[in-house]
Design a protein around this nucleic acid. Structure first.
Lengths: 141, 141
DNA sequence: TTATTATAGTTCGATATCTAACTATTGTCA
DNA sequence: TGACAATAGTTAGATATCGAACTATAATAA
């Protein structure tokens, strides 16, 4: 019973987490950067070079949305575009040196957020939560 | 370890759930209605009459956002506004008969969603999940 | 080789969402 | 009572987001 509470809690947690991220980014000099921008940069911190299509899939946004997000990150000089020489339809996205320089900050914010979210959780509890969420996700996706 | 996975899963679940709700609403003749609109109506199914301020708090949106959402539901003839006679600043929102008539559909969609999300969950698992999510929420909000 | 189909990315129009500024009304206190 | 503060709601401007339509390029098939 009270299953419906779980989804409500999920929504509240996600919104609070997003708020935390936005706040921390601003504190670290990245005003106007939202979690989706962070997602893009986090992908590029492990990927080096990525097409628009791949990026869109990895951050779970449409290509149309990604175009807007990428434009903003370019305006902030954090990433740049590069045409593929092999296939003129393809655009690669990569970090600028400035974008690279923020790697530590993004990792720090990510760590802080997770420490905050799961403060006081035993290893078992964390494991349990992840398993239950995986099961839930498999049911709905 | 892998704590960061939990928040990722939370985001995925929430988005899939929203997609499910939008899809089901459309199937039931409510095209263009999004979860936030559903939240408003669900509040009104238990509340009868509600000020803009109360509604905004209950659905966790700002008053500015609520104004837009309410305008749309009025355009769909699902709710209506009424000035408070006691306090001219206050606006009450209430369901129209048409809005009332959708009560069963919203409850059905909510039930279906929860059944789908937690299909195969034992009572213990559900309880466990809710408790862990409550603990997470308390940490971040 | 040419016509058709598929793919990558952008643009357009719509909408939910926010913050900040605003209007209008009510409450308070000196 | 009259000025100032508080409160309810809207408006304005910005942005993330989406689906649909579009452009340009590549691949395939006849």
């Amino acid at each position: 019973m009270k299953k419906n509470n779980a989804l409500y809690l999920i929504s509240r947690i996600r919104e609070a987490a997003n708020k935390f991220i936005i706040q921390e980014l601003e504190t670290n000099g990245l005003k106007g950067v939202v979690p989706s921008h962070g997602d893009i940069l986090m992908v590029l911190y492990t990927c080096e070079k990525c097409t628009m299509k791949e990026l869109a899939q990895k951050i779970h946004r449409t290509k149309a949305t990604l175009t807007v997000l990428v434009d903003k990150l370019i305006a902030l000089k954090l990433i740049e575009k590069e045409k593929s020489p092999q296939d003129n339809r393809v655009t690669y996205i990569r970090l600028t040196p400035l974008g690279q320089s923020y790697k530590g900050i993004f990792e720090k914010i990510s760590d802080e957020l997770n420490n905050k979210l799961f403060k006081g959780f035993s290893d078992d509890e964390t494991k349990n939560l992840v398993e239950l969420l995986q099961k839930t996700r498999a049911n709905i996706e």
